[in-house]
Nucleic acid binder design. Sequence first.
DNA 1: CGGGTTTTTGAAAAGCTTTTCAGGCCCATT
DNA 2: AATGGGCCTGAAAAGCTTTTCAAAAACCCG
Lengths: 336, 336
Amino acid sequence: MKPTIRDVAKLAGVSISTVSRVMNAPETVVPEKRKRVLEAIEQLQYQPNAFARGLIYKKSEIFGVMIPDIENPYYAGLLRGIQDAAVQLNHSVIICNTDRDRDRMIAYARNLFEKQADGIIYASDVLFSEFHDEMKRSRLPFVLVSTEARDYDVPSVDIDNEQAAYEAVRHLIGLGHREIGMISFPVGDTISGAPRLAGYLRAVREAGLGHCEANVEFAAYRFEDAYKAAERLFAKEPRLTAVFAASDEFAMGTIMYARDRGRTVPDDLSVVGFDDIRMAHMFIPRLTTIEQPVYQMGVRAVQKLHELVTNGRVSELRERLPHRLIVRESTARPPG
Amino acid sequence: MKPTIRDVAKLAGVSISTVSRVMNAPETVVPEKRKRVLEAIEQLQYQPNAFARGLIYKKSEIFGVMIPDIENPYYAGLLRGIQDAAVQLNHSVIICNTDRDRDRMIAYARNLFEKQADGIIYASDVLFSEFHDEMKRSRLPFVLVSTEARDYDVPSVDIDNEQAAYEAVRHLIGLGHREIGMISFPVGDTISGAPRLAGYLRAVREAGLGHCEANVEFAAYRFEDAYKAAERLFAKEPRLTAVFAASDEFAMGTIMYARDRGRTVPDDLSVVGFDDIRMAHMFIPRLTTIEQPVYQMGVRAVQKLHELVTNGRVSELRERLPHRLIVRESTARPPG
DNA sequence: CGGGTTTTTGAAAAGCTTTTCAGGCCCATT
DNA sequence: AATGGGCCTGAAAAGCTTTTCAAAAACCCG
């Protein structure tokens, strides 16, 4: 069916070795034969079989990407960077949507291993240790992106979440807010949850707003959870004038709750998000948020993985890219 | 490094044929040997090499997915369905973000062909004929999702875009609107652009609102384009009380423009979107829109592709899944 | 217990490419 | 003119698995 190197050789009247050489080291074959071979290749639309090459090179030029939820715009942005960078390196990316499920994750890892993926990018925010153990067993290279592993020496690309959260809350304090709360990720499971919460705590403490330390509610990862968390937060402390949300989606949930209660943002309540997902500037009001260089993080993650795969080591273990506070419409001075 | 079938055979004290049989037809080997082999496999953590199998079976268990833009939540949703269904079938999906670029698309197709992908899901909305020609040449099976090809006999999964658009506009008319406009996809390039526009035109014509036929502006695919298109639309016809947007993102752009001009939705202006992306119910106001069973469409697309790959044919060439109008907060009776 | 089946097993081939190795040819040098 | 060296080419091996085929083993029955 598909033409093989044998067919090309026959058509060009040379041996298969010569055809192979034309493809991999053209200068070693005399121009006249080279031309004949090239013509045969063109005519038959020949492409070498990836299985056969893989068997020899032991490389698939495939990277796997573990993502908790593609529908989450943050990860979609990351994925775009990853994909573009992979194309640059002539690699393909296999996408694995984990839904933060342990078994799916392990199954994906095994499958990627079997499919001879060259490496894995782990963009998930949870369950790292299980994954780590599985990876150690299969000895498949991998890097972390958008998280870093405290207790393991694993290459990672991330931002300084603690500092970024701190700056977000400073922004609120700078506007004059004194009654601040936070909607946080669940801190036990999540890796980036803890530093963002820590940044919030540091900021309020430092500003002498120790009473705000208790104004924290936890939400799982989605809009609806944030909506409910906001409900709990305001039930606990109705006088809040500002909320720091651990993600833009949380910010949206919070704002939606506020408006369903007849409070408008930013007049009655200021909300700052985190991530600067694409929707952040499409939302009404446009979200004040922390911008992550998410595309660039994806790019760096593949480059790092590539480095790890080819050299067996990586020059900079933990890489932190710059973040930035973007002030838009969802924050203002407190009412009154 | 990685254990091979040879290592397993040696450890279990049998031939490699026996090991192979244990994996593929266990009942043909006596229990005692089978047990020894299984133990050896477990001990060595043996997994058969996908390259070697591929060489024999000529199947990679990989599907490629062509998507214009992963960051577009509509495609992200589709991708989720695709990915889940692929996992069910024990397949992996390689993701190809085309950015609607002709050259990238062709390059992806070639690359997938070379990597021995078993088939391709084309979820893009443009440039179909170029892609089609390339596919014919490589004879790689493929299906369309979220578009259908008028002039070719290609398996596809879609909704009835014309009818859905018609219903969306009917909803507006039913609320009493008489001055309606539309933000449409560019009709020349896009496949689903034309039927949505046609549905709009049919609805307004049928309702005796022929003067609305001219109230159409075209936008490329993003929020910002829609924003500008809305600007042009209102410049042309300031009395509009309702807009039908060809996508939810367009609806958001339109609403954003309106609110930047001090008009509130739905009090001054009704807007209906299309797709029901996840953000549609997170937006303020929550969007009235046409729901597409996007997850299910993704699932059906892989199933269809799988059918095509295994049987060489498909039972139902063009499949149409049901859509549904969801009325939320962005539409109301016209002012006054 | 022997002959004939049936079951189980191992050797070898096939699938496609790259790479190593050796042979053939030509040129240059002595 | 003969020899050495370099360039170019083809044959064959290697990479890992499945499958075919034939041989060996086990079983059954008379």
